[in-house]
Simulated scan of single mutants.
Amino acid sequence: MKNKILVLIGILALYSCQSKNESKNIIKTIIQDTLSKTIGGTADLSDAPSRDDKAVALIRKQLNVLLVKDLATMTKDDRYFYYEAFDLNNDQKNEYFVGFSNSYFCGSGGCSGYILNNDGSVINHFTVTDFPIYVTTSSTEKFYDLIMKSGGLFHHIKMKNGKYPTNPSIEEKWKGDVPKESTKVLDIYDKKLEKYSF
């Protein structure tokens, strides 16, 4: 409720500050629309990233194939995923990081997930990973190196023969802090990524 009141005050202040020479009709229409959505509870006040319906459909279809043997034992609450797109090999096509955060896919060592190509094919499956994953600026085999946290430690993950290793906990430990120029992906807990069913 406080958010709605703050939005209303901000909009009213913006409206009252407009000069008389400006086109008030456009601003008035925007304000009225925003006010009605805010009061009605239909305004989207979150900062969740916009979704790509094609990517969601592609990932959903692929998960139903990859996890076909698991589907019968999974509950409805187990069947959701998060994703984030990132161009890992500078080919102007995004790859998809797909992660989970429920007990079916997560244990004491971390969670499982996938990295998919733009066409939905699997680059690799990974296990025992804590989110987020960091994409560095260095690369191996034309793919950016990753830093994954597993067991409380960061590990340097490099492409090997066209695949990233599946178990980050046995890879080379990362020494020092995560480089500031690295990009966080699948920041499931802090970024409030949208959750999708499959």
Rank of each mutant, 00 (worst) to 15 (best):
I59G: 06
K61D: 14
L66M: 10
L66D: 08
L66V: 05
L67K: 14
L67V: 10
A72H: 05
A72Y: 06
T73L: 14
T75Q: 10
T75P: 02
K76Q: 07
D78H: 12
R79E: 06
Y80C: 08
F86V: 13
L88P: 06
L88N: 09
F97P: 06
S101E: 04
S101L: 06
N102A: 04
F105M: 05
G110I: 01
I115D: 03
I115R: 05
I123V: 15
T127F: 13
V128D: 00
D130I: 05
F131S: 01
F131R: 01
I133M: 02
Y134S: 12
Y134P: 09
V135W: 00
T136F: 01
T137M: 07
T137L: 08
S138C: 02
K142F: 01
K142T: 08
M148T: 07
S150L: 03
G152E: 02
K158Q: 10
K158A: 07
K163I: 10
Y164M: 05
P168E: 07
S169K: 12
S169W: 05
S169Y: 11
E171Q: 14
W174P: 02
W174R: 09
V178W: 09
P179K: 06
E181Y: 01
K184R: 11
L186S: 07
K191A: 15
K192S: 02
